[in-house]
Nucleic acid binder design. Structure first.
Length: 585
DNA sequence: CAATTCGGGGGG
DNA sequence: CCCACCCCCCGAATTG
């Protein structure tokens, strides 16, 4: 029971730790500036009621958002901010160069106390069509760790932020990724509006009806008529039965026709002059839709007019999100016709314009590139006017080449022009590449840190130029390019791209947080329903659409200032207010 | 037999 | 000379 002192802090303090207890209750404690509990620990019988009774709490500190927030949402308790201890642990470990150590709160506490560190539990697979992690309703929300121990872990994490290279940025990183966790849970709950009837019509039109018999995987029907026809056309072109879905068979068939190919990739087939090419390419496109986004996918993933993928903020090393199940970040363009707003509602589809080049301008502080990125207009056009005599495509390729680490082709010439005009920008990514080649770590603007090179740490070679490795099957005496081995160069391309892609992901977290807050503050019915690297979709009543579009643009600019500080770089969006996702752009 | 790898395609 | 970066998902082939 709360004593009088706790009742007082209840009113005054805005940071509380909380955990769910067995039977739907909660354990909670107000925290001081040092992250330590101010007084005792409270126990209350109803988790949701405990949260709803404390609207003054500005930040809820908990072990895992994915574990606790879905049930709060289900009970109608949206919260403003949280701090996700296990997510922060992952970011802090990375920053400390301890990538790969277990990130559970239990592991963190064990390290604190010099006890045996438990390995992380294996990630569970997504459950098709699940409303949320409802089957996790009761289980081990405390994960075997006493609440007091969890609080110790949190307090120590606060001190670890202080020791980061840029403490304020690191705090912003963990806070914004925690906000991302809230957004992820809320998007899962809202779901992307999905018209199964439209999807089915689409499939019937593209693939034709299904013949009887066939693998259940493909929706209880056999191979669709259109695929069977294309298989016949391919076979006719070769003069024998050929299975288009078996690369080995296709390679062999072309060989028999006197055409040697290394693979059956689309671009390679497109080079060939042969009657089988056209039906083959058509087959591949449709086959992909059939297997990955066909009737079976629809059955597995769409419930009651919504597609509810599980979003994982920071799911990739660079900080980009992943989704778990359903392939939500790879929805083919043609399938987007099935994403339709509810009656009287709209989809506001917003795409950040040339996000990565703008981020490079912001992080490198290159004066010329900041100038180019300081306008809302097309960045590549503006770039080409300055340095590529008006050739937009050359400008674009050069910039992307610099960001990706292009090593050959026409882009290299253009890269030289880029280097002359934007020396700081190119130096920024070159430095990141050099760090990677030398086995050093690099960080995003906010402090997300690259994983170490494989075998780094055991080797004394970090920082020492390595010899090129002989190619398998080569006769030795391999020509060496610069100093770095093939692996080191690959790593250089990775770290080069990491600082840009990752800093863009930093910005995207702030964008989502700002947008979420703006929607709430304006009291809109709008819901964030989709996020894909540089693109957001908000589902809202038609009369809110203009306000939402404006809120997105403002959130983009705000995210730019919060993430990168004082910068002239703009972060504009292309927004479309549509009823169907496929009508955007 | 299940688990892993390969080849191909989808997204940014 | 490595022939750009980050991913997910599928079926077939291969491996344990």
């Amino acid at each position: 029971m709360p004593d009088a002192r706790l009742d007082r802090v209840n009113e005054r303090w805005d940071r509380w730790a909380i955990e769910a207890t067995e039977g739907g209750g909660a354990r909670l404690a107000p925290l001081g500036d040092d992250g330590l509990p101010l007084g005792g620990i409270l126990e209350e019988p109803d988790l949701t009621a405990a949260v709803l009774a404390r609207p003054h709490v500005g930040r809820w500190v908990w072990r895992s958002t994915a574990e606790i927030y879905p049930r709060l949402l289900a009970a109608g308790a949206r919260i403003e901010r949280c701090y996700d201890i296990e997510d922060a642990e992952l970011l802090l470990l990375g920053h400390e160069g301890r990538y790969g150590e277990p990130r559970s709160a239990a592991a963190s506490w064990a390290r604190l106390r010099n006890r045996p560190v438990p390995p992380d539990p294996p990630p569970r697979a997504a459950e098709p069509g699940s409303q949320s992690s409802l089957f996790e309703f009761e289980p081990r929300s405390t994960a075997g760790l006493p609440f007091e121990a969890l609080l110790e872990v949190y307090a120590e994490q606060q001190r670890r932020h202080d020791r980061a290279e840029h403490p304020a940025r690191m705090r912003l990183l963990t806070a914004s990724e925690s906000a991302g966790m809230l957004v992820a849970a809320e998007m899962h709950r809202s779901g992307l509006p999905w018209r199964a009837d439209v999807h089915r019509e689409l499939l019937d039109g593209l693939l034709g009806e299904r013949y009887a018999s066939g693998s259940p995987r493909t929706g209880g029907g056999g191979e669709p008529r259109r695929l069977a026809e294309l298989t016949d056309q391919v076979s006719a072109a070769f003069g024998r039965r050929v299975r288009p879905d078996l690369p080995a068979d296709v390679v062999k068939a072309f060989g028999e026709a006197g055409m040697r190919i290394k693979s059956t990739r689309r671009w390679e087939l497109a080079e060939l002059d042969h009657p089988a090419v056209e039906p083959l390419i058509a087959y591949k496109k449709l086959y992909r839709i059939w297997t990955a986004h066909g009737w079976s996918w629809l059955h597995d993933w769409v419930r009651e007019g919504r597609f509810r993928p599980e979003f994982t903020p920071g799911g990739t090393v660079s900080g980009r999100w992943t989704t778990n199940g359903g392939g939500a970040l790879q929805i083919p363009k043609v399938i987007r016709q099935a994403v339709v707003a509810d009656a009287g509602w709209r989809l506001v589809v917003a795409d950040a314009d040339q996000m990565e080049p703008r981020v490079l301008a912001a992080i490198s502080r290159d004066p010329g590139l900041m100038e180019v990125a300081g306008h809302d207009g097309d960045l590549y056009t503006s770039l080409s006017d300055r340095a590529f005599s008006g050739d937009r495509n050359h400008a674009k390729l050069a910039l992307l080449g610099a960001i990706y680490g292009q090593t050959s082709g026409d882009g290299l010439k253009n890269l030289a022009a880029l280097r002359r005009r934007f020396p700081l920008a190119v130096a920024y990514v070159d430095d990141a590449a050099k760090a990677g080649e030398e086995g050093r770590l690099v960080r995003t603007w906010l402090g997300r840190t690259s994983p170490p090179a494989l075998g780094a740490g055991e080797s004394d070679e970090a920082g020492i130029p390595q010899e090129a490795e002989p190619q398998p099957g080569s006769s030795g005496g391999e020509f060496t390019y610069g100093y770095a081995s093939r692996d080191a160069r690959a790593r250089g391309r990775f770290t080069r791209n990491f600082v840009v892609q990752g800093s863009a992901a930093d910005w995207a977290l702030l964008l989502l947080a700002a947008l979420r807050r703006a929607i709430t503050a304006a009291g809109l019915r709008a819901e964030l329903v989709f996020f894909q690297h540089d693109e957001v979709i908000v589902h809202c009543p038609a009369d809110e659409a203009d306000v939402v579009a404006k809120a997105i643009r403002e959130a983009g600019e705000l995210a730019g200032r919060i993430t990168f500080g004082d910068t002239p770089v703009r972060f504009p969006f292309t927004t479309a207010i549509v009823e169907r996702y496929s009508d955007a752009k």
